[in-house]
Nucleic acid binder design. Structure first.
Length: 279
RNA sequence: UGUCUCGUGGCU
């Protein structure tokens, strides 16, 4: 059963719920993990209706089962559904509370989220991170800073959430100071700062930071590429594009944009014709 | 062995 469960999980992660279901159906004796992984596979594949259906068939849904569905409803923007599941749960753990908190945030009701947060019987660093990130995303940087300062402890996600709040022209200096002072940074941290420079149009800093990155993934490349396409020449864009280890649709689109903005319709057309996927 | 929070463009 363990191996079968792992397979279900794997296919679920790849977004292949149908394949996961095939394996699920072959298991003679399913344990609670088989059901939860199958439920998770449906939510990861975006099949909320199927998720509901399988959830209703779970013999004894655990808090985990409830949480999986709750989190999926929250992420899909179904606030009412999330609320209904949450209210109907036999018991809650801190993940349930965090998921419902993030449902409020998804729903765009920060005031309600704050009230919910204040009433939560227990909070983890995830709860705090979610709130900081919500205020930062809304542009309420001073409130985000206040909350950040009150946190009992931080992890790299806390730092990153706070960093996103500095993605504004007025905060460039603070962004850099904060970033430089971080005890811990990862890929995401670097990319947030990179993105801020790109958006604000500080091409020089952007490029310097890009070159200083310990490693670069496709997201970082795309940010740099998009910075070039908005603030530099198609030639620069093309040069960077050619050094990329791989491309996705965003990379191609940025290159197209660079040419179009320069009025190089012919080059844009040629680029378009060589794209592997033309959406 | 499982569930919650952080990063990439344009149009709307």
């Amino acid at each position: 059963v363990h191996n079968a469960n792992d397979l279900i999980r794997m296919h679920g992660r790849l977004g292949n719920a149908a394949k996961a279901r095939e394996i699920f159906d072959l298991i003679p004796v399913k344990d609670r993990l088989s059901w939860d992984y199958m439920l998770l596979a449906y939510t990861q594949g975006g099949s909320i209706d199927e998720a509901w259906r399988i959830f209703d068939q779970i013999p004894q849904p655990s808090v985990f089962s409830f949480n999986i569905l709750l989190s999926a409803l929250s992420q899909s923007g179904d606030f009412r559904g999330a609320r209904r599941i949450f209210d109907g749960m036999p018991q809650w753990d801190v993940v349930s509370w965090n998921s419902m908190l993030s449902a409020h945030i998804q729903h765009g009701d920060l005031a309600a989220a704050q009230r919910f947060f204040d009433c939560m019987p227990e909070k983890t660093i995830v709860s705090w991170n979610a709130m900081v990130s919500a205020y930062a995303a809304k542009g309420d940087t001073s409130i985000a800073k206040l909350l950040f300062g009150k946190m009992p402890q931080w992890d790299v996600a806390s730092f990153n959430a706070m960093l996103t709040g500095f993605d504004q022209e007025d905060y460039v200096l603070e962004l850099r100071r904060f970033f430089n002072a971080l005890p811990e940074a990862n890929f995401v941290s670097w990319t947030i700062v990179l993105t801020a420079y790109a958006r604000i149009g500080h091409l020089f800093e952007c490029q310097a930071l890009f070159n200083a990155m310990p490693q670069r993934d496709i997201v970082a490349y795309n940010v740099m590429l998009s910075a070039f396409s908005h603030h530099s020449t198609g030639k620069d864009s093309k040069a960077l594009f050619d050094t990329m280890p791989q491309w996705d649709m965003l990379s191609w689109t940025s290159l197209l944009n660079a040419y179009i903005q320069e009025g190089h319709i012919d080059r844009a057309k040629r680029t378009y014709d060589t794209m592997p996927m033309q959406d």
